[in-house]
């Protein structure tokens, strides 16, 4: 109206954030650790989307990957082993205006944190979950994790592990209310960024399993994938991951998969001979828990104070007659 659009009002005092504005402590990961690439991708996302640091939270559990919040100059919570998700859910339900990111390792998420993981998928709260999967417990010096391939020799399985590895993407797809499942590898930065970006854009619980090299304990684990690009299946779609032409020259094994197709998503998630990279499943229509349980009444500072005082009064000394 009035010959102008109300959208023309802008906040000119607003700051422009560069990558440096998101960098916290100097990372203390081992030289060559794949976590560095994931950190860079996350910082780049913050910069591209201009997420105000004071409106952004990174939550983690325990493990190498869980040092993540220390290296981000945003709000962060370095939580308990396996308990990153409940903390993140607490943050989100109280402050739905914040951008919540969760970083967990394979041990953190798929072992001690499994129950929280399963229920977090069901709750479908709007957050980005990055599961750094190096197939080993690195921080505690090499013990087999649920995602270690069968036969992995470690301090807890000197003769090689006895069980088949757990498949985190297939597991996630099997839980009710699943809304976003993707698989990435940290050594292709372009795709890693693209997948994290899509996860951020998705409204709901966006689960990304990121294959991450541990140069110290499982240095050769991903060699077959890295040395032969044919072993990666690039799952692309106009509604899913997209890749540049330059990258298509290197990774020629490109397939088109509509991420709304659950049965195909299951097919790719259960692939054993090759490793799919891309967005396997996406459904925008699943309701988010924080919206379903949105409080009808606004909690103002005044109401909070009233409630607190009411509680204190219970313990107050009543004047004797």
């Amino acid at each position: 109206m009035f010959g102008v659009s109300i959208n023309n009002i802008i906040d000119i005092d607003q700051k422009y954030y560069s990558m440096e504005d998101y960098q916290g402590d100097v990372p203390r990961w081992c030289p060559g650790c794949g976590d560095n690439g994931i950190l860079t991708a996350a910082q780049r996302l913050c910069r591209e989307e201009q997420l105000p640091p004071e409106k952004t939270v990174f939550v983690s559990g325990i493990g190498c990957s869980s040092r993540f919040p220390h290296y981000m100059n945003t709000y962060g919570f370095h939580g308990l082993h396996g308990r990153a998700l409940p903390i993140a859910e607490g943050v989100k339900i109280r402050r739905p205006d914040l951008h919540v990111f969760v970083n967990m390792g394979d041990g953190d998420c798929c072992s001690i944190g499994t129950a929280h993981w399963i229920h977090a998928i069901r709750f479908n709260m709007n957050m980005v979950v990055m599961m750094h999967d190096n197939g080993i417990y690195g921080l505690t010096k090499k013990q087999a994790s649920p995602t270690s391939p069968k036969g992995t020799k470690s301090n807890t399985s000197p003769k090689g592990s006895y069980l088949d590895a757990l498949n985190p993407t297939a597991t996630t797809l099997g839980v009710q209310n699943v809304s976003f499942v993707a698989q990435a590898v940290e050594w292709i930065p372009e795709l890693l960024y693209e997948i994290i970006r899509q996860a951020y854009k998705h409204k709901g619980f966006s689960f990304i399993r990121i294959m991450q090299r541990c140069p110290h304990y499982t240095p050769a684990m991903f060699d077959p994938l890295m040395s032969n690009p044919e072993n990666l299946v690039m799952v692309t779609h106009e509604n899913g991951m997209q890749m540049s032409d330059a990258l298509k020259k290197v990774y020629k094994n490109v397939v088109t998969h509509d991420p709304s197709d659950m049965s195909q998503a299951n097919y790719y998630a259960n692939m054993t001979d090759k490793m799919p990279v891309g967005i396997l499943y996406k459904n925008e229509n699943v309701p988010c828990y924080e919206e379903l349980r949105k409080p009808e009444r606004t909690v103002t500072a005044k109401l909070k104070q009233e409630a607190l005082e009411k509680e204190f009064d219970k313990f107050g000394i009543m004047p004797t007659e």
Binding site: P27, P31, N36, G37, L39, T40, W187, I188, P189
Partner: peptide, 9 residues
């Protein structure tokens, strides 16, 4: 450069 994983090595 586009393939760098920022590992600091």
């Amino acid at each position: 450069t586009p393939l760098c994983t920022s590992c600091n090595d």
